[in-house]
Design a binder for these strands. Structure first.
Length: 152
DNA sequence: GCCAACGTTGGC
DNA sequence: GCCAACGTTGGC
């Protein structure tokens, strides 16, 4: 049996790319992630997987839901010489960084704050509680559903 | 392959 | 703005 994890959490600085930006764009490629752990999780994402969309910075809240519409593919920003996300080690044959495509699903009326997530015993073990820096992380289906149904 | 130095993220 | 956490780089 393959890995059946199919819920994720994506972090974003809202000044950089917010849930409202995603709502406007409807779809986007999740480019610019430059962390190997995060990349490895993104490569496990499949079309149809669901994602919590988290705003870091001032808000520190889960603000909505997105879904994966295409599996990870080479991140084009790694080839842009002089660009912020340029990757000198990457070639077209052997790209280093990958990005799935995601689609807007919903924005919460009530964002779920990190404080609540940390305090709620039902969310014990959530990666977000421990790994403060990881920008793409798996979420158990139980935790995902709980956040949607009980907290948002 | 170790580890010190360095850089970045992100909560507070 | 600070700083803890932690990922990455590069010298050895």
């Amino acid at each position: 049996m393959t890995n059946i994890i199919n819920c994720w959490l994506l972090k974003s600085e809202p000044q950089g790319y917010s849930i409202d930006d995603l709502k406007r764009d409807k779809k986007t490629f999740w480019t610019g992630v430059r962390n190997f752990q995060a990349r490895n999780f993104m490569q496990q994402m499949k079309k149809g997987d669901t994602c919590l969309f988290y705003h870091s910075g001032k808000e520190t809240s889960v603000v909505g839901v997105a879904k994966v519409t295409a599996a990870a593919q080479p991140d084009p920003t790694q080839f842009v010489k002089g660009g912020h996300y340029f990757e000198p080690r990457a070639t077209k044959e052997k790209p280093v960084w990958f990005c799935p495509e995601i689609q807007f699903v919903k924005k919460f009326n009530d964002p779920v704050n990190l404080g609540v997530i940390k305090a709620d015993r039902a969310l014990e073990g959530m990666v977000l509680r421990a790994k403060s820096r990881l920008s793409v992380q798996p979420v158990s289906e139980k935790h995902f559903n709980y956040i949607l149904k009980e907290l948002a």
